[in-house]
Design a binder for these strands. Structure first.
Length: 552
RNA sequence: GCCCCCGUAGCUCAGGGGAUAGAGCGCCGCCCUCCGGAGGCGGAAGCGUAGGUUCGAAUCCUACCGGGGGUACCA
């Protein structure tokens, strides 16, 4: 019995109580109730605090409500015992057969175990990374690449249709700075003060000159344009390749330039003006964001007639909405948190609902640590670290895992000495090792001709078996929560917990027959449990885009 | 100044109002007759401070202290 099934059963019992007039709830009985795995084993397999939650509304004392629930719950199929504890907790023990059935259900569901249809029909646009094509993908962007892709996988797992989108900013002044840097390097000069100092600029300039030798004969202003065009193109190719190698595939690369060329910017501005949300002042055109909760109003067309950066965002947002996305999610670094107010106000100015149609997810910064101190020098960039630097030192699996393992709200320090280790200190290794161990048993079982017959799942009564079953039963709930809160780290933590439960089970429950022992029902049931563990670890790792090795 | 994030064990971090606050590392002590010991078991050790809300607060609110980031008619 999974927590979800139990929740439904308890809700059904509540409905009955209300229908029979035993309990009066002004808002009726809920459809689901909170069911959790208690920390203390004495508190049963599962516990619920519904009685505490609803007592006040029902106008009864929590223990009395608990009594009524308990009596009826004990009659429910699969529930072995219900105890009332403390102020009104219900501690529920599930019978072994119903518990063991979870393993069979998981194996039957296979790769679809943990998925849900809660987001069905929702079209989500998830924009992340969106780094300017002025250099290699940085370490900071790497976090958004891993987190964003994982959020996308989670949304897909819960039934949403997701478009992974990269906003390619090829319109602004920083591109000029790249072009100037390339020109300088191409002509054997030092990069300007505000240029890009990395060695990649020199490489790029050489590459461009090799492919287009005629640039050498152009004057500086023509060469500037050539370097600009080819530089952006090549940089962009490199960024795409880096991300692809990192297992992040974008569906759409959107060019800011297109918005300006197509008239989309003007269209967005006109729309906002029609809605009465713009005004002119000091020769500039402003968007009235303050009335929608922003700190102050924002310029969208500068007094020199040039559109301000925000105008591109307006047009881009409108474009996404017109492409049919119900929800536009954007991942941003903490250095952009100041944009939240104006972006949300902009959304509201279009008549949309901030938080629903537009959602900004802010994450904190990343550092790399080695031997206890922060690594500052990137290989090709001089002063800033790249995704490639990270992957080179710890590999893709560890990099993806390390980048999503923590809440986005915390500054992330990645200790590359730790993540490069092949020991259990390294969380990704710990989880992958559990999967390899599982796979090994399954291989051995196949050699023994043991696969197929599930035995009797009711025999899985060992404490460690129960712990493992409950851990495995938790995946759908964790996926649901991680998706809803946009918190992929919950998947990683869950996997570590599940891997731990498996290692403990393995340590005290022999799975395969020893020596000449005849295979029995318990062997088969445990084998099913091992197989279910494989499914859960593999599905969880897949959500993180991390491989689930059968051998390591 | 104002805004955002963080402050939990010696260290790195989990803990979406619930029962005795968890994990890994490090430290101390254990467990190998066969499935991968790259594992497992036990022990010592903690919610920045002060108020408030609540039957119940690490979690919500306020103030303060400490760390990080931001605050352009730049993009």
């Amino acid at each position: 019995m999974t927590p979800e099934q139990l929740s439904t059963s308890i809700a059904a019992v509540l409905h009955d109580l209300v229908a029979d007039g035993d309990v009066h709830l002004p808002d009726g009985a809920p459809d689901t109730v909170t069911v959790e795995r208690p920390r203390q084993r004495e508190h049963g397999d599962y516990a619920t605090n519904v009685a505490l939650q609803l007592a006040k509304k029902a106008g009864v004392n929590p223990r009395a409500l608990a009594e009524m629930l308990s009596t009826r719950l004990e009659a429910v199929d699969g529930i072995a015992a219900v105890e009332i504890a403390g102020p009104g907790f219900l501690n529920i023990t599930v019978d072994a057969g119903a518990q063991g059935q979870v393993a069979a259900d998981i194996v039957a569901a296979g790769s679809s175990y943990g998925r849900a249809g809660t987001g069905a029909g929702e079209r989500v646009n998830l924009e992340f990374v969106s780094a300017n094509p002025t250099g290699p993908v940085t370490l900071a962007s790497a976090r958004w690449a891993a987190v964003g892709d994982t959020i996308a996988r989670l949304l897909e797992a819960t039934g949403s249709t997701v478009t992974r989108e990269y906003y390619f900013n090829d319109h602004g002044a920083q591109i000029d700075r790249l072009a100037n840097s390339l020109l300088a390097r191409g002509r054997g000069r030092d990069v300007p003060e505000d240029g890009y100092p990395g060695s990649y600029v020199t490489e790029l300039a050489e590459e461009i000159l090799a492919a287009h030798p005629e640039i050498a004969d152009e004057d500086d202003s023509a060469a500037f344009e050539s370097f600009r065009r080819h530089g952006v193109d090549l940089m962009f190719v490199e960024i795409k390749q880096t991300l692809k190698d990192f297992r992040v595939d974008f569906d759409v690369y959107f060019h800011e330039d297109d918005l300006h060329r197509s008239g989309a910017v003007q269209k967005a501005i006109d729309r906002l003006s029609e809605l009465g949300n713009t005004f002119e002042q000091d020769g500039a055109l402003w968007l009235a964001t303050e009335k929608f909760g922003d700190d102050k109003d924002r310029v969208i067309v500068r007094s020199n007639g040039q559109p301000a950066y925000l105008s591109g965002d307006l047009a881009y947002y409108l474009d996404k909405r017109e492409r049919g996305f119900d929800r536009c999610l954007i991942l941003l670094g903490a250095d952009h948190h100041g944009y939240v107010g104006r972006m949300m106000a902009m959304c509201a100015a279009f008549g949309d609902t901030p938080g629903t149609n537009l959602e900004l997810i802010i994450g904190q910064m990343v550092n790399l640590l080695s031997h206890g101190s922060v690594v500052r020098m990137g290989k090709r960039t001089g002063n800033i670290l790249t995704l490639d630097d990270l992957v080179e030192s710890i590999g893709i699996d560890a990099a993806r895992y390390a980048l999503v393992r923590n809440s986005m709200d915390v500054n992330l320090d990645i200790d590359i000495d730790l993540w490069a280790k092949a020991t259990s200190d390294n969380p990704v290794f710990y989880v992958q090792y559990a999967h390899a161990r599982v796979s090994s048993i399954l291989r051995n079982a196949a050699d023994l001709g043991l696969a197929g017959d599930p035995g009797d799942v009711g025999l899985l009564t060992h404490e460690r078996e129960g712990d493992l079953l409950r851990a495995l039963a938790g995946l759908p709930g964790v996926v649901a929560t991680a998706t809803e809160l946009r918190e992929p780290h919950r998947i990683a933590r869950y996997l570590e917990e599940t891997a731990g439960a498996y290692h403990r089970f393995y340590d005290s429950c022999r799975v395969l027959p020893m020596g000449d022992e005849e295979p029995g029902d318990l062997h088969r049931a445990r084998l099913l449990l091992v197989d279910a563990t494989r499914v859960v670890l593999a599905n969880g790792l897949a959500l993180l885009g991390v491989s689930a090795p059968e051998r390591m």
